[in-house]
């Protein structure tokens, strides 16, 4: 028997209502925990800093001007804020380098796991997730113990007689990058593995049958097919690396700033909350732009494929 249209319509409406009700908790959390605070940050970026931190409720665009331009401390001339710019550039460079290295190391790792017999794959994946058992701060301090002047590497090299004075590894840009690479590498391997696992290896065999070189098989068959995994992994590594705070703080020695530490300075000793808020939004904008670039790039490639 065919039900009347009215009943169908009512059922559909009930369905829609149920969906809204079911997603209401998530939407509420989003509104209160994400959008609300974000609006406060935007608001604060247009206020005046209080003399000892906090904000004064009067409108000002000084914070935004201060993100990009700086007034010379001593002769009052305006110029590009090269203090901020060099911190932006350093953060971008370190985040990009970390992402590229994670990709270069993560791809063979994921490929290795995906080509294991099904029974042992579980074990390899399990090993990849082990670092997540411990807090990032503790893992970073573990890294510090390894690379410090009287740490594992330097003491071993000295005992072997290969060096007579410790190599300075701690408190360098290289240490920060190595720390971030260590912490974020699993975030690259897991999505890569998800893509590689779905890869139909008969296509690879077909490529070889048609006399393709291994390099050609990699670039024309494997890479295009695992591109979504590469993009997902890169995003997962790049975004937290760009705003990283703990790793540069512990392994960078606080001497060279990154965006995360620059923002923290404004809310602490800098006593310039509006500038800190404006810088936070700038960081979010940088992440957004990076995402858009990734997505566009990814979209175009898929169409070509």
């Amino acid at each position: 028997m065919i039900r009347p249209d009215g009943a169908l319509e009512a059922a559909r409406r009930r369905d829609v209502r149920a969906r809204w009700l079911l997603s209401a908790p998530a939407l509420l959390i989003l509104a209160f925990a994400a959008i609300g605070p974000l609006l406060v940050v935007v608001l604060y970026s247009f206020l005046t800093p209080g003399p000892y931190g906090d904000v004064i409720w009067s409108f000002s665009t000084d914070a935004w001007v201060g993100v990009f331009l700086e007034r010379d401390i001593f002769d009052d001339t305006l110029s590009l804020a090269d203090a901020h710019m060099s911190i932006f550039v350093r953060s971008l460079t370190l985040a990009t380098a970390t992402t590229v290295l994670a990709l270069l190391i993560g791809f063979p790792t994921a490929y290795f796991i995906a080509t294991r017999p099904e029974r042992t794959r579980e074990l390899w994946l399990f090993l990849i997730t082990i670092p997540f058992w411990t807090n990032i701060l503790i893992r970073t301090f573990g890294m510090l113990e390894i690379i410090r002047n009287e740490g594992l590497i330097n003491t071993s090299l000295r005992t072997l007689g290969l060096i007579d004075r410790p190599i300075q590894m701690l408190f360098t840009d290289g240490a920060v990058m190595a720390g971030m690479l260590y912490v974020y590498l699993p975030l690259m391997v897991l999505p890569l593995y998800a893509s590689l696992e779905k890869l139909d290896f008969r296509l690879v065999e077909a490529g070889y049958d048609l006399y393709a070189t291994p390099f050609r098989v990699l670039t024309r068959i494997v890479l295009p097919l695992v591109k979504p995994g590469m993009i997902a992994g890169s995003i997962l590594v790049f975004i937290p690396a760009l705003g990283a705070y703990v790793t540069p703080r512990v392994l960078g020695g606080g001497k060279t700033m990154m965006l995360g530490t620059l923002i923290e300075l404004q809310f602490g000793q800098g006593r310039n909350w509006p500038l800190g808020a404006a810088l936070s939004i700038t960081l979010m904008a940088m992440v957004m732009v990076a995402l858009l670039v990734y997505v566009r790039y990814a979209g175009r490639e898929v169409r070509h494929g």
Partner: peptide
Amino acid sequence: PPEAQELYTRIWTELQK
């Protein structure tokens, strides 16, 4: 005083770059 503090903060930020 705040006017000294502001100069210190700017020197500090410049030192951090």
